Simulated scan of single mutants.
Amino acid sequence: MAEADKAQAQLAWAGLQDGAAVLRLSGSWTLAARKPDLLVVWRSLADKPAALQLQVEALEAWDSSLLALLRRLQRLADEEQRELRHDDLPEGVRRLLRMAAAPAAEEREELPRFGPVSRLGLLALHVRDALVEACSFCGEVLLALGRLLRGRACLRRGDFWTALMQCGPGALPIVALIASLVGLILAFVGAAQLEAFGAQLYIANMVAIGMTREMGALMTAVIMAGRTGAAYAAELGSMQANEEIDALKTFGFPPLEFLVLPRLLALLVSMPLLCVFADALGILGGFIIGAGVFDISAPLYLNQSLELIGLADFLLGVVKSLVFALLIGLIGCHHGLACGRNAQAVGEATTRAVVRIIVALVVSDALITLICTQLGI
């Protein structure tokens, strides 16, 4: 109790000095000290001059209580339109007061407005930088693959098998569902046209060719883009935001070999298998429509499908699936490693990765189809 009585804060009017009313502050201004009522002290001087002078004497200790007092005192002076001077405050108190008086958020500088030519130039520079960065990343991945072939890459087999289980067997249910529905849709669309000519049997031809050459590989790739490509971007982006990749570099583990190669190799192994699986289920979906709606017998449907499908058609779908696997792995991992250092950046990187993967899939599929058409494949 004696210590509490000793630790007191003093605040009282002390006359006039150079035309200004002096408000004397002394003692210990801490949370534990007993403090006078500011409103009572303020109202005790009825006729206040236009200027007020805060005089600090024998200030033993202070903390945030003193800052709160000064802020309240400044508001009272502003309400009565009086000038408050506090030149003899400790330097630390004055610095904190300036920080408290500063606006919470600084006004943002107005961005310059560019004309159409300038915007076009900036877009060209942005595209150039993105292409250079992408080419550099692909080159580093190729070098890492070369080290892997020489047996010098830092790659753990456990990481590869974990990634393979995630993008292989883990994707079978959704691939099975989508491939079956695509086969059903192709059969329905073809039947609507072929029924007018009494050529329902050729539903098998259309479904078999459409699934093996185009839809099997493309639909599987789109599913893997939303499922695996987004997961790669989010996983690596979270590691980048949490500085785990920096920790790997500090300990001498190359991120490309340790993180990218297992995921890329897992996609290269699983995508052709998933493509073949999707082809089979798509043909099965077409058979359900052919047999259930148009009474095409199972042997006749299968013979019609196998007669039309050649080895070139089957291999074309497998080659497309390999190209799509490369695009999904490279784009997803690249956006994950290029992610920013916060949660918002992880979401943005994942969104950009999925969008660019799908665009790359469609463009590459169109180019491969155009080349094969020109070559007569």
Results as ranks from 00 to 15, higher is better:
Lys6Tyr: 07
Ala9Pro: 01
Leu11Ser: 05
Trp13Tyr: 08
Trp13Gln: 07
Gly15Pro: 03
Asp18Gly: 08
Asp18Gln: 15
Ala21Lys: 03
Val22Gly: 02
Ser26Ala: 12
Trp29Met: 00
Ala32Glu: 14
Val40Asp: 14
Trp42Lys: 06
Arg43Ala: 12
Arg43Met: 10
Leu45Gln: 14
Asp47Gly: 09
Lys48Glu: 02
Ala50Ile: 08
Ala50Arg: 13
Leu52Tyr: 08
Glu57Thr: 13
Leu76Thr: 08
Glu83Thr: 15
Arg85Trp: 07
His86Ile: 05
Val93His: 00
Leu96Asp: 01
Ala101Gly: 13
Ala105Gly: 11
Arg113Asp: 12
Gly115Ser: 11
Pro116Asp: 09
Leu122Phe: 08
Leu123Arg: 14
His126Ile: 03
Arg128Tyr: 12
Leu131Phe: 11
Ser136Leu: 10
Gly139Gln: 04
Gly139His: 02
Leu143Lys: 03
Ala144Asp: 00
Leu149Glu: 06
Gly151Pro: 08
Gly151Cys: 08
Cys154Tyr: 12
Gly158Trp: 01
Trp161Glu: 11
Thr162Gln: 14
Gly168Ala: 08
Ala171Arg: 06
Ala176His: 05
Leu177Asn: 06
Ala179Tyr: 02
Gln193Trp: 06
Gly198Pro: 06
Gln200Leu: 15
Ala204Thr: 07
Val207Pro: 00
Ala208Thr: 13
Ala208Asn: 05
Arg213His: 09
Gly229Glu: 01
Ala231Cys: 08
Gln240Pro: 00
Glu243His: 04
Ala247His: 08
Leu248Asp: 10
Pro254Ser: 10
Leu256Arg: 10
Phe258Ala: 15
Pro262His: 01
Arg263Asn: 01
Leu273Tyr: 05
Leu273Arg: 04
Ile283Val: 13
Leu284Arg: 00
Gly292Cys: 06
Leu300Arg: 14
Tyr301Cys: 06
Ser305Trp: 00
Gly310Phe: 03
Leu316Cys: 13
Gly317Tyr: 09
Val318Cys: 13
Ser321Glu: 05
His334Trp: 13
Gly336Leu: 03
Cys339Pro: 01
Arg341Cys: 06
Asn342Met: 05
Gln344Glu: 15
Gln344Arg: 15
Glu348Ile: 12
Thr351Met: 04
Ala353Met: 04
Val359Glu: 05
Val363Glu: 05
Leu367Ser: 07
Ile377Asp: 07
